[in-house]
Design a protein around this nucleic acid. Structure first.
Lengths: 138, 138
DNA sequence: ACAACAATGCAACTATGTTGCAAAATTATT
DNA sequence: AATAATTTTGCAACATAGTTGCATTGTTGT
């Protein structure tokens, strides 16, 4: 597991540091999405707030994680699938947010439907965020 | 126009105040969506920041405006259609954000497609946000 | 092992959002 | 139309989120 993390960092031409390793591991352990605040709390005083911000930024730029637009407009991040590369995100999957427990899921196998836009609009990216109850909170 | 604003406030059992009238008018004049910052800049020092926050909150609660989940996770608001009532938003339309000029459109006639979720997930609300180029920015 | 480079931590700052309370404005009552 | 009851506003103070510059530390390549 740890080895995979290091590999992933190297593959993206990133130097291997404590914060990057541990933050990546957090994402892998937590199946779902994480907010900046989640990471800050989980890591205690181990890293500076600024380091977390910069690490997340770097990961987004490298295509390791992607941001999730949420209904409550709080920023969340989740691991990308392998197809994402630098500057080219291909997160064509639906995101689900549980109103009860707050967990955010990437529904990798639910693809975003085609939407017909009025004349003059050109779509580059489509984000679908569904909120409701997850299986744990029935 | 002004008369319509007052009517709308009264219909929602809100006292008619300067800030509420002017903020509502801003939404009506601007076809698209507005962020808190937009309103703050447009109104100069006329209203306190806190008043704007509280006015927007009140309008959302009453179903006069709705929030738009955006790809960049900044909070934006737009007028609701007539069907929205207190606590019951029915904004089943697609939102479009222009990457170039930043304008956010409510595509009232583009309805949100049905999405089949995996077993155990129960959808209550579906938000679709499409970003790209609008007709003004080809 | 060392030079070159990149990432971190710290401090200071800006932006964003919230809460309590007194003053001012709006609404309801007589 | 004037006043009482209620709401809303503005202010101050605070809390959270996010950014930038720079010296120090850690990582990488030779």
């Amino acid at each position: 597991m740890l080895y995979g993390v290091i590999e992933l960092l190297k593959r993206n031409q990133l130097s291997v540091t404590d914060s990057r390793k541990k933050i990546l591991e957090m994402f892998m352990r937590s199946g779902g999405a994480l907010a900046h605040a989640d990471i800050e709390h989980k890591s205690g005083t181990e890293f500076d707030r600024v380091t977390i911000y910069r690490t997340l930024q770097t990961f987004v730029e490298k295509g390791i994680i992607h941001t999730i637009p949420t209904a409550d407009n709080s920023v969340r991040y989740a691991l990308c699938k392998d197809e994402c590369s630098e500057g080219h995100h291909h997160d064509d999957h639906v995101h689900f947010m549980c109103d009860d427990c707050g967990t955010t899921y990437c529904l990798d196998h639910v693809t975003v439907p085609e939407v017909k836009l009025p004349l003059g609009f050109h779509a580059l990216q489509t984000d679908v965020v569904i909120s409701g109850r997850c299986m744990k909170c029935v």
